[in-house]
């Protein structure tokens, strides 16, 4: 696997092998954690919904590992980026607490499931309205430019459906005009909820849009971890070196329902048996073994460790209290002297 050279990079995964191994471990951690949340959802312990990134872990982790939060990079994950969030540096406990409604969570149980972030760390707290977080990532880059911090880049995630929003178009065009160091990762998982891509866009490949926006484009098999790591590393380097926004399309398949409430019966056998239907975790595991970078015993050991880690995070979050409405401030304003209170008169 070719390794892109990053100028002045402090990337801790200095060679392909260590990065690949680290990436795989994040993928596994995300997979095991999400399967646990799905079980908790079915057991009625999680309300609202559970949204998994099954089948998208390689693509998700690829972007996140090309970013470096210690360098000021900014990350805008979306619903299927548990793997990327972990790789960027979000604590597993933050995810468990948000899903399980713990008052100790980063969103104080005001928000749930994937609607979480960490602004100081550089993680945009997504709202549901698809596409609207892209320009927010851009804004952080613009802000950094104002403050003389020129080194940082942004990475932002969206699905194929999300590319149909006006917000996506406006943000891409704006980022191109501003020549922002922004890597836009589009996970084309063939469906937006039940809607297949042929009801979503009419171009052959979403990467065709890159030329229209005047940005550099990359289109890859999103089930191949090597390719994902490599492409995002290159795209991040291009962005950092001043070549402007990078549009990376990953072709893959959602290997789960839209949420855990959805049996995804609309996904055909043809899709499942098709080239993008393979499970990126299996593919990566085979590669690790065949390349000699790891072996089954080590992977089993990782899995055991991860299961403990997941158990620890979820049971901790489950033991913690939920929010108490009498302790809640019920204030949406930062400027408390201007807050009106909640009059019922």
């Amino acid at each position: 696997m070719a390794e892109a050279k990053i100028k002045g990079s402090k990337n801790k995964y200095c060679d392909s092998e260590s990065r690949y191994r680290a990436a795989f471990r994040y993928m596994l951690l995300a997979r095991v954690f999400e399967e646990r949340t799905a079980n908790l959802y079915r057991a009625g312990k999680i309300v609202g919904g559970v949204f998994m990134g099954k089948g998208q872990e390689a693509f998700s982790v690829g972007l996140a590992l090309a970013l470096d939060k210690n360098r000021g990079d900014v990350y805008g994950p979306l619903i299927r980026d548990q793997a990327g969030r972990l790789a960027f540096g979000e604590a597993l406990l933050d995810a468990a607490r948000t899903y399980l409604g713990s008052i100790e969570g980063p969103m104080k149980a005001r928000e749930g499931n994937v609607h979480r972030g960490n602004i100081p760390m550089g993680i945009i707290p997504m709202i549901s309205h698809l596409g609207s977080h892209i320009s927010v990532v851009s804004g952080r880059l613009i802000g950094k430019r104002f403050c003389g911090q020129k080194d940082a880049i942004g990475g932002v995630c969206i699905g194929d459906g999300g590319t149909s929003t006006g917000a996506f178009h406006e943000a891409l065009n704006q980022a191109a005009v501003e020549k922002l160091p922004l890597v836009v990762a589009v996970a084309n998982n063939q469906f937006a909820y039940s809607t297949p891509t042929d009801r979503q866009f009419a171009c052959d490949d979403l990467v065709d849009r890159a030329i229209g926006y005047g940005v550099e484009g990359h289109s890859i098999d999103g089930t191949d971890l090597s390719l994902c790591l490599d492409t995002f590393q290159k795209a991040a380097t291009r962005a950092r070196e001043g070549y402007g926004p990078q549009l990376v399309i990953g072709h893959l398949l959602r290997l789960c329902g839209h949420g855990e409430h959805d049996d995804a019966s609309y996904i055909s056998e043809k899709h499942k048996q098709g080239v993008f239907g393979r499970d990126c975790v299996d593919v990566a595991q085979q590669y690790l073994i065949s390349s000699g970078w790891s072996n089954l015993a080590e992977i089993e050991q990782w899995t055991a460790e991860i299961q403990k880690e997941v158990e620890k995070a979820t049971s901790c979050a489950q033991r913690e209290s939920g929010p108490d409405p009498f302790q809640e401030t019920w204030q949406a304003l930062a400027t408390t002297r201007l807050a009106e209170g909640n009059s019922t008169a």
Binding site: A109, H115, G322, P323, P325, W330, E340, A345
Partner: peptide, 23 residues
């Protein structure tokens, strides 16, 4: 008597059922 009104609270709508029920 002076008319009264009862609305949701003046914050976004919370996720957690404990908070939502009070909101």
């Amino acid at each position: 008597a002076p008319p009264k009104r009862l609305n949701a609270k003046d914050t976004p709508i919370p996720f957690h059922p404990n908070l939502w029920k009070a909101h």
